[in-house]
Lab assay of single mutants.
Amino acid sequence: SADYSSLTVVQLKDLLTKRNLSVGGLKNELVQRLIKDDEESKGE
């Protein structure tokens, strides 16, 4: 998976916004949300 932890919070929020995901929470939560979304989209 992508190394989201190396991105800035601003970059993470931009990715979340593009996916229509919540941008609330700490950086670690944003990273986990993106990883979870990646895993769910692979399952389709």
Score class of each variant (00 low, 15 high):
Gln11Trp: 03
Tyr4Thr: 00
Lys42Val: 09
Leu26Ser: 15
Asp3Met: 12
Glu40Arg: 14
Thr17Ala: 15
Glu39Ile: 11
Leu26Tyr: 08
Glu29His: 06
Gly43Pro: 10
Ser1Tyr: 14
Val31Trp: 03
Ser41Thr: 12
Leu15Val: 05
Asp14Cys: 15
Val23Leu: 09
Arg19Glu: 01
Leu21Ala: 02
Ser6His: 11
Gln11Tyr: 04
Arg33Val: 03
Asn28Pro: 10
Ile35Asn: 06
Arg33Asp: 01
Thr17Cys: 11
Asp14Arg: 15
Tyr4Glu: 00
Leu12Gly: 00
Asp14Met: 14
Asp14Ala: 15
Lys13His: 07
Val10Asp: 15
Glu29Thr: 07
Glu44Trp: 14
Leu30Gln: 03
Gly25Phe: 03
Ala2Gln: 12
Asp3Asn: 10
Thr8Cys: 06
Glu40Thr: 11
Arg33Trp: 03
Glu39Asp: 07
Tyr4Arg: 01
Lys27Phe: 08
Glu29Met: 06
Glu39Lys: 10
Leu21Ile: 04
Leu26Lys: 13
Leu34Trp: 01
Thr8Ser: 11
Asp38Ile: 05
Lys18Val: 07
Gly25Asn: 02
Thr8Pro: 05
Ser1Leu: 13
Leu15Thr: 03
Asn20Thr: 05
Ile35Arg: 09
Ile35Thr: 07
Leu34Lys: 01
Ser41Tyr: 09
Leu16Ala: 04
Ser22Arg: 08
Ser1Gly: 12
Leu34His: 00
Glu40Asn: 12
Arg33Pro: 02
Val10Trp: 11
Leu15Pro: 00
Lys13Gln: 11
Ser6Lys: 14
Ser6Glu: 09
Thr8Tyr: 03
Asp14Gly: 08
Asp37Val: 04
Asp37Ser: 11
Val23Ser: 09
Val10Leu: 14
Asp38Glu: 05
Leu16Gly: 00
Leu12Asp: 00
Asp14Leu: 14
Glu39Pro: 03
Arg33Lys: 04
Glu40Met: 13
Val23Thr: 15
Gly25His: 02
Lys42Asp: 08
Gly25Asp: 02
Leu15Glu: 08
Asn20Asp: 06
Lys18Arg: 11
Asp37His: 12
Gly24Phe: 13
Lys27Ile: 07
Asn20Ala: 07
Asn28Ile: 11
Ser1Thr: 13
Gln32Phe: 06
Leu34Ala: 02
Ala2Trp: 13
Leu15Ile: 09
Gln11Lys: 06
Asn28Cys: 11
Glu44Gly: 13
Lys13Thr: 07
Lys18Ala: 10
Gly24Thr: 15
Val9Phe: 07
Val31Phe: 03
Val23Met: 06
Asn28Asp: 14
Leu26Trp: 07
Lys18Ser: 09
Gly25Met: 02
Leu7Ala: 03
Arg19Gly: 01
Tyr4Leu: 03
Leu34Gln: 00
Lys13Cys: 09
Ser6Gln: 12
Arg33Leu: 04
Thr8Phe: 02
Ile35Ser: 05
Arg19Asn: 01
Glu40Cys: 13
Leu21Met: 06
Ser22Thr: 07
Ser22Tyr: 08
Leu30Lys: 02
Gly25Val: 02
Asn20Gly: 15
Tyr4Asp: 00
Val31Glu: 05
Glu44Lys: 14
Leu16Asn: 01
Lys42Thr: 09
Leu7Tyr: 07
Leu12Glu: 00
Leu16Arg: 00
Arg33Ala: 05
Val9Ser: 05
Ser1Ala: 13
Tyr4Phe: 03
Glu39Asn: 10
Thr17Tyr: 11
Lys18Glu: 08
Arg19Lys: 04
Leu12Ala: 00
Asp37Thr: 04
Asp37Gly: 05
Lys13Gly: 03
Thr8Ile: 02
Leu30Gly: 00
Asp3Trp: 15
Leu15Ser: 02
Gly24Met: 15
Ser22Lys: 09
Leu30Phe: 03
Leu12Ser: 00
Ser6Gly: 09
Asp37Cys: 07
Asp38Arg: 04
Ser5Val: 08
Ser41Phe: 09
Ser41Leu: 10
Leu12Gln: 00
Arg33Phe: 04
Asn28Arg: 09
Leu7Ile: 02
Gly25Gln: 02
Leu7Gly: 00
Ala2Glu: 10
Val31Pro: 02
Val10Asn: 14
Glu40His: 11
Ala2Lys: 13
Thr17Lys: 15
Leu21Lys: 04
Gly43Leu: 13
Gly25Thr: 03
Lys42Gln: 11
Gly24Asp: 15
Leu21Gly: 01
Leu30His: 01
Lys13Tyr: 06
Asn28Gln: 12
Arg19Pro: 00
Leu26Ala: 13
Val23Asn: 07
Ser41Cys: 08
Lys36Leu: 10
Leu15Tyr: 05
Glu40Pro: 06
Gly43Lys: 14
Gly24Glu: 15
Lys13Phe: 05
Val23Tyr: 06
Leu12Met: 03
Leu30Ser: 01
Arg19Gln: 01
Glu39Tyr: 10
Glu29Ile: 06
Lys27Asp: 03
Leu16Ser: 01
Glu39Ala: 10
Ser6Thr: 10
Lys36Ser: 08
Glu39Arg: 10
Gln32Leu: 11
Thr17Asp: 06
Leu21Glu: 02
Leu30Tyr: 03
Ser1Cys: 13
Thr8His: 04
Leu30Arg: 01
Gly25Glu: 02
Lys13Trp: 07
Leu7Glu: 01
Leu21His: 03
Val31Tyr: 03
Val31Thr: 04
Leu15Gly: 00
Val23Glu: 05
Arg19Thr: 01
Gly25Pro: 02
Asn28Met: 11
Thr17His: 12
Leu34Met: 03
Ile35Met: 11
Leu21Val: 02
Ile35Val: 09
Thr8Asn: 07
Ser6Pro: 04
Leu34Thr: 01
Gly43Asp: 10
Leu26Phe: 09
Val10Phe: 09
Val23Gln: 07
Asn20Tyr: 06
Glu40Gln: 13
Glu39Trp: 11
Glu29Gln: 08
Gly24Ala: 15
Val9Thr: 07
Val9Glu: 08
Val23Trp: 06
Gln32Arg: 09
Asp37Lys: 05
Leu26Arg: 12
Ser22Gln: 08
Val23Gly: 06
Arg33His: 02
Thr8Trp: 02
Asn20Arg: 11
Glu44Leu: 14
Leu15Gln: 05
Gly24His: 15
Asp3Tyr: 15
Glu44Ser: 13
Ser22Gly: 08
Val31Asp: 01
Lys18Thr: 07
Arg33Asn: 02
Val31Ala: 04
Asp37Trp: 13
Gly24Lys: 15
Arg19Val: 01
Thr17Gly: 08
Ala2Asn: 12
Asp38Leu: 05
Tyr4Pro: 01
Lys18Met: 10
Ser1Asp: 09
Gly25Lys: 02
Gly43Val: 12
Glu40Ala: 12
